[in-house]
Design a protein around this nucleic acid. Sequence first.
DNA 1: TTAAACTTTCAAAAAGTTTTGAAAGTTTAA
DNA 2: TTAAACTTTCAAAACTTTTTGAAAGTTTAA
Lengths: 168, 168
Amino acid sequence: MELKEAKEQFIHAWGTLGSNWGINKTMAQVHALLLVSPDPLSAEEIMAELNISRGNANMNLRDLIEWGIVNKIHKSGERKEFFSAEKDIWEVAKQIAKERKKRELEPVMKVLNQLQNVEGDVNEKDHKAFTETISNIQKFANNADSTIDKLIKADENWFLSSFMKLIR
Amino acid sequence: MELKEAKEQFIHAWGTLGSNWGINKTMAQVHALLLVSPDPLSAEEIMAELNISRGNANMNLRDLIEWGIVNKIHKSGERKEFFSAEKDIWEVAKQIAKERKKRELEPVMKVLNQLQNVEGDVNEKDHKAFTETISNIQKFANNADSTIDKLIKADENWFLSSFMKLIR
DNA sequence: TTAAACTTTCAAAAAGTTTTGAAAGTTTAA
DNA sequence: TTAAACTTTCAAAACTTTTTGAAAGTTTAA
């Protein structure tokens, strides 16, 4: 397979994966393109490579920067801005876990906490089912929360070797 | 807070969480409704409770069953079919992990494998960046894959207690 | 058989999301 | 200053996904 074709296939696969996870396909594709580019790319180059408009490129680059997995690079002697992606995929995963925890898990945990004080007869079937489901989910959410905290602090080596042995 | 309002808030929060993870909001809401219902519900009841059409209810129930987290129940003496959700959230999480692995991780791993044999000069900058990124992602994917396999086989107790101590 | 009770399907409509590109805004060099 | 080079914004258009509801299909009881 040609390098060009391989890059295209990778960009396509990464876009599909992103889509499935509620991430704009183009955002995932811009990320993929930067992942396989040895040097930072300009907006122009990204637009040309992926056949997208200036606005689209700009918006998705902004979002990727907000997620903390793409950086603006200023090359000396160049007026243009360039963009590069964090290449260590373990760092990328940690960053995404951190952001999703903040944006999604934490708000849900807040709601779950409020739902604990529901009025009514504790012996009623409906009431019981509700409070039991909520407290079950709360326990799970607390565990997920502290597991993610530990992942964020853990280093790659921990994930790649010791973790796999410990849980064998 | 009234039980009715609490249920509504939970259904709303679960729907939002689902949306963020690429799951149809209505599907997540049907799931939430079944999670807080002590007894199985009929399609009619679900339609009424969530204000959705018959087709919509039917389609999302079918998908939830396909995901393995909702079951059809036949009540004796009743012509109608009823639906109930798996209430143990750890079982739900394992089932979803299993399905997403099959539907998303495995296809990506297949593509990554094919991208290993790319032609060209191994010393070229572009070529090097590409193969390094791909093999980095491959290692990560292999780890994720075998971690999910272990999670699927692990029991709840393992997640709730021993895991947290081990990785301290 | 028949028909009532129920479930599934699917084309069209509605809703939601993404993309475009031109205009407005900003920065820099001269 | 000015104007060229570049970035950002945003309303409208294109596209995608979800939802509807009526029709078709299926099952059951009599």
